[in-house]
């Protein structure tokens, strides 16, 4: 019986946590639409076999579509990450354009995007 009580307590805590999250969401609007971004990054980093570039790109495409139709901002790094996956899939032109978009949206990333364009992208072109 002891474990059953524990599970009950856990469920109660979980419900309270959810309520708190809901209250939190109402008062704080996110700066960015996160969509599948974290799931994609996490999956591709920890279980690359389950999350190959094509699947991750598909998830990001859904986010892109949702962000465009709801006029929401995509998180920092989204375009650079998309660029990396496009590069892996051999879509070099689309990748270059994605890295450039990251640099335009977030000037803080410009130096890094220039580095990628100058080294990594050049390697894939040759």
């Amino acid at each position: 019986m002891v474990p059953r009580v524990k599970v009950g307590g856990f469920v109660a805590l979980w419900l309270i946590a959810n309520l708190m999250l809901m209250v939190g969401c109402e008062s704080n609007r996110s700066l960015y639409q996160w969509g599948h971004y974290e799931v994609a990054v996490h999956g591709n980093l920890t279980r690359p076999g389950e999350f190959p570039p094509e699947r991750v790109l598909d998830l990001l495409d859904q986010d892109l579509f949702n962000a465009e139709s709801s006029d929401a901002a995509l998180p920092p790094g989204f375009w650079a990450y998309r660029g990396m996956l496009l590069l892996e899939s051999g879509e070099v032109d689309a990748a270059i354009s994605a890295f450039e978009t990251e640099g335009q949206l977030f000037p803080e990333s410009q130096a890094f995007m220039d580095f990628i364009l100058a080294t990594v992208v050049k390697d894939s072109e040759s």
Binding site: Y32, W34, E38, P75, G77, A80, Y81, M84, S109, I116
Partner: peptide, 16 residues
């Protein structure tokens, strides 16, 4: 990445 971006920082894409 998410909490740091939501705090208002530019966070370099961790996977990249």
């Amino acid at each position: 990445a998410q909490p740091l971006c939501e705090l208002g920082y530019y966070v370099y894409p961790v996977a990249v």
